[in-house]
Amino acid sequence: MVVEERIARKPRRSLAWLQSIGIMLKVAETQLRLISRYPGSLAIDVIMPIVTTAIPILLGRSLTGSFDAQAFAANTGTTDYVPYMLIGSSMLTVVTTALWNVGFWVRREQQTGTLEAIYLAPASRFWVLAGVALYGMVRSLVSLLLSFILGCLIFGINPLQGHIGLAFSFLLLGLVPVYGLSLIYGAVVLRLKEAGALIQIAQWLTSLLMGIYFPITVFPPLLRWIALVFPPTWMNNGIRAALLGVGWFFDSWYADLGVLAVFAVIMPVLGYNLFAVVERKMQRNEGVGTF
């Protein structure tokens, strides 16, 4: 009977993979479409890191007389504090937008009721979330590139110094654990139905731990340890080391990259499982549809 056939139309195993990838791409594409309906958001993405860089740089320039290049070099391993700052604030923007990515997505879809609509569909949550992360990555990489190039022009930096390929490896591998953290934040938002709380503090804490404005070598030991279990710290330092030669945490690039690779496995697994637990808990009570 026709009806029987229709139910039986579950993807065959070989096709299931392709279809899952297709879902991920469609979700990412739709999110990009949505954001493209808010022109100006890209401009803000691009300009923010430059503005946040400009402050310490201008501060540094105005204090040129008292700026102690030697002390800076002793702590950071480079005398080029302008590119050091630009890389730092670009990284900060990339990391923080990635951190809030899943949470903001959950909140938006909760409010429009589309989260429930997604939960009605057979597409696996994993691939939908992967699509959201992919969208976040595309968006932040594009704005990162634009703002970095623009920043180099404005502050007169040569963007082609150092090991660019290695820096990219740190960037791409480093973003994976950040999306794991993003899932954890997403799970919190799913539960509390509130995305704004704690963001101010978390933003400030992130910039501190990542060593954006102060290298973590100047931290007291306890704080340094905390910074070292925060994956973006390794990414940020790796990129600075690759481009500016500030020095690795473990004396060699592959050891540092290896640490990031471990984080890249652990954090997404942790994040996804937490998300699934919260989701289950919600379905046991009022569901994901309430807002």
Partner: peptide, 21 residues
């Protein structure tokens, strides 16, 4: 509720069609 108001109707349908394989 449950529709993307910023997208067109056709884009909405294409999106959900994908989610339903």
């Amino acid at each position: 509720r449950g529709l993307y108001w910023k997208l067109t109707g056709r884009e909405n349908l294409a999106y959900f069609a994908a989610l339903y394989f």
